[in-house]
Design a protein around this nucleic acid. Structure first.
Lengths: 142, 142
DNA sequence: TGCGAGTGGTGATATTATAACATCCGTGAT
DNA sequence: ATCACGGATGTTATAATATCACCACTCGCA
């Protein structure tokens, strides 16, 4: 992600939060920035490390609280199978995203609006879906 | 799961392993039994507890090794979003399953053969998919 | 001014998972 | 028979991930 698009994403996030009556505080903004900067899913404790240099070294709850907020706002998604987090420049309030994660380079592509499964159990009502595809992206495929 | 179908599932598992040139040892068999008996996803440390009563109290690696084996054999699936495990009476060597998990009663239904995503990034090749739907089953819906 | 909600700091601890090395046991070669 | 080997398990310790409980601060507002 380029410097410019990072800045644009942060501004978009700011107004996205404002629209929801919530505040993108400095900690939250910094965490979002770190997640967006990364070119692969980021671990919570790596964020923790990255926040250390500052005068107030962050503790785990700080990071997890920021991540919870960002996930609720749709600005960050958790990759459940990796216990890691990916940023999302175009926030959506709808449920979950469909993620395509390259096992070689770590890049993540996000898609939305997958149709309901064809083969659903009778009467089941979906509230939240986790869909994560692991494989090789066009660049890494040989 | 009834007593009878449990026994049948264990026998099926036994021959499934034999067909692969692998052994369903007592520890592995016991872990599979515990997972199948449960009517909801089971945590690794609950299995650990359940194995304690025996003379040799199991340690974490024992349980995780058994689970790794059973997953490789397709007899157990991990619910990534819950860090928990579900049994699967009809083993399949193919990749992953699509899981429907009821948030009320914990019941899990398994489906297979979902079509490839319609909206896949150009050139992406899927190796393994994690698909977990959370919601309410027919019995718990109101 | 004082209250209350929201936010973040801090220390402790719970939960999930693996590393590293020792031991045991069955199988096949010598 | 016995030795060497590989697979499975036992054992100790620790790594990695996540939450709890409580306190302090700040800001908007009655």
């Amino acid at each position: 992600m380029t410097r410019d698009s990072l800045i644009r994403a942060l501004e978009a996030a700011e107004s996205h939060c404002a629209g929801r009556g919530e505040k993108l505080t400095p900690v939250r903004r910094r965490v979002l920035e770190l997640v967006l900067e990364a070119d692969a899913p980021v671990k919570a404790y790596d964020l923790l490390e990255a926040l250390k240099p500052g005068p107030g070294a962050a503790k785990p709850p700080t990071v997890y609280r920021a991540l919870d907020f960002l996930m609720a706002a749709g600005l960050v998604h958790k990759v459940e199978a990796l216990n890691a987090f990916v940023g999302c420049s175009h926030a959506h309030d709808d449920g979950g995203a469909e993620l395509f994660i390259c096992s070689d380079c770590g890049s993540v592509e996000e898609r939305h609006g997958a149709p309901d499964p064809v083969n659903m159990p009778d009467g089941f009502v979906i509230e939240r879906s986790v869909v994560e595809h692991f494989g090789h992206c066009a660049n890494c495929r040989h």
